[in-house]
Simulated assay, not measured.
Amino acid sequence: MNRDITSPQQPTVSRTFTVLLSPTRRGARLARLLTVAHLDLWGLPSESAAHIVAELATNAAVHGRVQGRDFRLGLTVHREKLLRIELTDTRGDALPVVSAPDPHAESGRGLLIVEAFADRWGIVPGPVPRKTVWAELDLVP
Rank of each mutant, 00 (worst) to 15 (best):
W42H: 10
L75S: 01
P45H: 09
G43W: 11
G122I: 02
P101H: 08
I52Q: 08
P103S: 12
A31C: 09
L44E: 04
T6W: 07
W121T: 10
A116Y: 12
P103Q: 07
V140H: 06
S14E: 14
A61Q: 01
T12L: 15
F117K: 11
L75F: 00
L87A: 02
L73F: 01
S48I: 06
P45M: 07
E86C: 10
R69V: 07
A28H: 00
G68N: 11
A118G: 06
R25L: 14
G108Q: 08
P101A: 03
A61M: 00
T35N: 12
V98I: 15
P103A: 11
L87H: 02
R84T: 15
I52W: 01
L34S: 04
L30Y: 06
R72A: 10
E86G: 05
G110M: 07
A61F: 03
L34P: 00
V98N: 02
K131Q: 13
T132S: 11
S7F: 13
E115D: 15
K81F: 02
S99Q: 08
A100E: 15
P127K: 06
N2M: 13
S48M: 01
R29G: 12
G74D: 00
L21S: 10
V98K: 08
G110H: 01
Q10T: 15
L44F: 14
R130N: 04
R3E: 14
A94I: 14
E47C: 05
T6H: 14
P96W: 02
A118I: 03
P101T: 05
R3W: 11
P125N: 05
S14M: 14
R79S: 09
G74R: 09
A50V: 04
N59C: 04
D70V: 00
H38M: 15
A28K: 02
L30T: 14
G122C: 02
L44Y: 11
A135Y: 05
P96N: 13
V114N: 05
D119H: 11
A50F: 06
E136W: 08
D102S: 12
A94R: 12
V53S: 04
D40I: 10
A94K: 08
L34W: 08
H63K: 06
T90G: 00
S46Q: 01
N2T: 14
E47D: 10
S22H: 09
R72C: 00
V128W: 10
S48Q: 11
T24K: 13
G110T: 02
E115C: 11
W121I: 04
V13G: 09
I5G: 03
A54M: 08
V124I: 14
T90W: 02
I113Y: 13
G74Q: 03
G126W: 04
R109Q: 13
H78I: 10
L39Q: 03
G92L: 00
R15P: 09
D119R: 09
V53G: 06
H63V: 01
P129E: 11
L139N: 00
H78E: 05
D138C: 12
P11R: 14
A135H: 03
G122D: 01
G110Y: 03
H63A: 11
